[in-house]
């Protein structure tokens, strides 16, 4: 059954009609056109759909859209401000942490949640924070490097 759904995404308010069983990922992508969040598995196993809910990393494919009402939702589209990349995005580009780019939005969101909570993480903390974000291309080496570089302002 469709009901009115109110979401706050990247500081903008949206109101759409949605079936109550829709996941946040479906609503972000199909109703709001925010296709930066990816579906790699739809079952909580790859992290490509990671978004922030009140600053914490969440898997949008496992989150019911209606349960995200009243929360601040941040997606990859909300990181760059006035065209200026977030330091993690910037480091991702400069350090070669992006190959095909399909996993990129997901791990960048995980890294943002980490650095917001712990600005100077250890390498193990970085690895742990993104251990739910699978990447088939990079071997994670440059992803880890870039997150550490961002945390050090490099």
């Amino acid at each position: 059954m469709k009901r009115a759904l109110k979401l706050t995404v990247n500081d903008e308010d949206y109101e759409v009609l949605a079936d109550t069983h829709r996941t946040l990922l479906e609503v972000l992508r199909d109703s709001l056109g925010l296709t930066g969040s990816k579906e790699g598995c739809g079952f909580g196993a790859c992290g490509a759909c990671t978004v922030l809910l009140d600053g914490k990393a969440n898997l949008a494919c496992l989150t019911l859209a209606f349960s995200a009402q009243g929360k601040q939702i941040t997606t990859i589209e909300g990181l760059a401000v006035n065209g200026k990349l977030h330091p993690i995005q910037d480091a991702a580009v400069r350090y070669g942490a992006i190959q095909c780019g399909f996993c990129t939005p997901g791990w960048i969101m995980s890294a943002k949640a980490l650095l917001d909570e712990k600005p100077k993480p250890t390498e193990l903390e970085v690895k742990t924070a993104i251990s739910g974000n699978l990447c088939r291309c990079t071997g994670y080496v440059k992803i880890i490097e870039s997150i550490i570089a961002a945390s050090e302002g490099k």
């Binding site: 296709t35 930066g36 990181l79 780019g101």
Partner: peptide
């Protein structure tokens, strides 16, 4: 990479993003 910024910001479109 010249497509790095598009991929880092989520604006790069994959086949399923062609809505």
């Amino acid at each position: 990479k010249i497509d790095g910024v598009a991929k880092a910001t989520g604006s790069a479109r994959f086949s399923r993003d062609m809505i």
